[in-house]
Amino acid sequence: MNDRHLIELNVNGTEHEALVEPRKTLADVLRGDLGLTGTHLGCEHGVCGACTILLDGEPVRACLVFAVQAENSDIRTVESLSRDGELCDLQRSFSEHHGLQCGFCTPGFLMLAEGFLTQQPDADREQIREAVSANLCRCTGYQTIVDAIAATAAERAGTDTPSDPDKAATS
């Protein structure tokens, strides 16, 4: 009896085939079989969010999805964000607003934010805070991550960066 299955995956717009055991996670296939190491593995229990990718447009923890479950789905990893060596608006904003330090959690936050802003392009800072609370960061304290996402939302909407009521209260 063969315990491996040939699956087809569309990852970052490219079709791939992989021969996988049913229990192999999507994170392991992305990293090990396809060499897309931007998807980080932290807790491997779905808690930290470092492995967040977009599965059919929805942010999901790749460590909790079996690769066979993702067959024929549209998968986007952090590698899909930059084009021709140029950072996308969200990546630039994370850099400009110091939304990263050690960088380990950054791919997960970027993919969470990309999915969130696609679904809620006019999100306010409180909605952004709620969304990012799904992922863990041990370095930045989250404020700079919220700043980066809010700035990207404003840029995409063609408006000024929304003011931060917390900063205004302390000024």
Results as ranks from 00 to 15, higher is better:
residue 51 C to F: 06
residue 58 E to R: 15
residue 148 A to L: 08
residue 25 T to P: 00
residue 65 V to N: 01
residue 123 A to E: 13
residue 152 T to G: 07
residue 62 A to K: 03
residue 82 S to G: 06
residue 70 A to M: 07
residue 117 L to D: 05
residue 154 A to H: 08
residue 108 G to F: 08
residue 55 L to D: 00
residue 68 V to A: 05
residue 10 N to Y: 00
residue 28 D to L: 07
residue 98 H to G: 08
residue 81 L to D: 01
residue 2 N to E: 15
residue 47 V to E: 13
residue 10 N to H: 04
residue 91 Q to I: 11
residue 8 E to D: 15
residue 164 D to C: 06
residue 131 A to E: 11
residue 69 Q to F: 01
residue 49 G to P: 01
residue 36 L to H: 09
residue 14 T to Q: 15
residue 9 L to S: 01
residue 30 L to G: 10
residue 54 L to I: 08
residue 139 C to D: 06
residue 147 D to H: 12
residue 112 L to N: 07
residue 4 R to H: 12
residue 8 E to A: 11
residue 18 A to C: 13
residue 122 D to K: 10
residue 45 H to E: 15
residue 73 S to T: 14
residue 156 R to F: 08
residue 17 E to G: 10
residue 138 R to C: 07
residue 4 R to K: 15
residue 62 A to S: 15
residue 84 D to H: 15
residue 99 G to Q: 04
residue 1 M to N: 08
residue 156 R to Y: 13
residue 54 L to P: 05
residue 8 E to Q: 14
residue 169 A to I: 10
residue 114 E to Q: 15
residue 131 A to D: 03
residue 27 A to L: 15
residue 60 V to P: 00
residue 92 R to T: 09
residue 65 V to E: 09
residue 141 G to V: 12
residue 64 L to G: 01
residue 170 T to C: 08
residue 169 A to V: 05
residue 77 T to W: 00
residue 127 Q to S: 13
residue 10 N to Q: 13
residue 104 F to N: 04
residue 70 A to P: 07
residue 35 G to K: 04
residue 59 P to L: 11
residue 140 T to L: 13
residue 84 D to I: 04
residue 80 S to Q: 09
residue 8 E to Y: 00
residue 25 T to D: 10
residue 71 E to R: 03
residue 60 V to Q: 04
residue 160 D to C: 00
residue 62 A to W: 02
residue 167 K to T: 14
residue 160 D to S: 11
residue 115 G to R: 06
residue 112 L to P: 02
residue 131 A to Y: 09
residue 124 D to Y: 05
residue 160 D to K: 11
residue 88 C to L: 10
residue 103 G to D: 10
residue 153 A to G: 09
residue 2 N to G: 01
residue 171 S to V: 08
residue 134 A to N: 03
residue 50 A to G: 07
residue 159 T to I: 04
residue 159 T to E: 12
residue 148 A to H: 00
residue 142 Y to L: 12
residue 30 L to T: 02
residue 53 I to Y: 03
residue 134 A to W: 01
residue 141 G to E: 13
residue 44 E to H: 01
residue 4 R to F: 11
residue 3 D to S: 10
residue 82 S to E: 12
residue 63 C to Q: 07
residue 26 L to I: 00
residue 68 V to G: 03
residue 39 T to A: 14
residue 50 A to C: 06
residue 46 G to V: 06
residue 110 L to W: 06
residue 40 H to M: 02
residue 95 S to H: 12
residue 168 A to F: 01
residue 165 P to D: 13
residue 41 L to P: 00
residue 71 E to I: 03
residue 21 E to T: 10
residue 111 M to V: 14
residue 123 A to K: 00
residue 144 T to Y: 03
residue 11 V to H: 04
residue 170 T to R: 13
residue 73 S to D: 14
residue 26 L to H: 02
residue 52 T to G: 05
residue 154 A to T: 06
residue 89 D to W: 09
residue 70 A to T: 02
residue 86 E to H: 15
residue 148 A to R: 01
residue 142 Y to W: 11
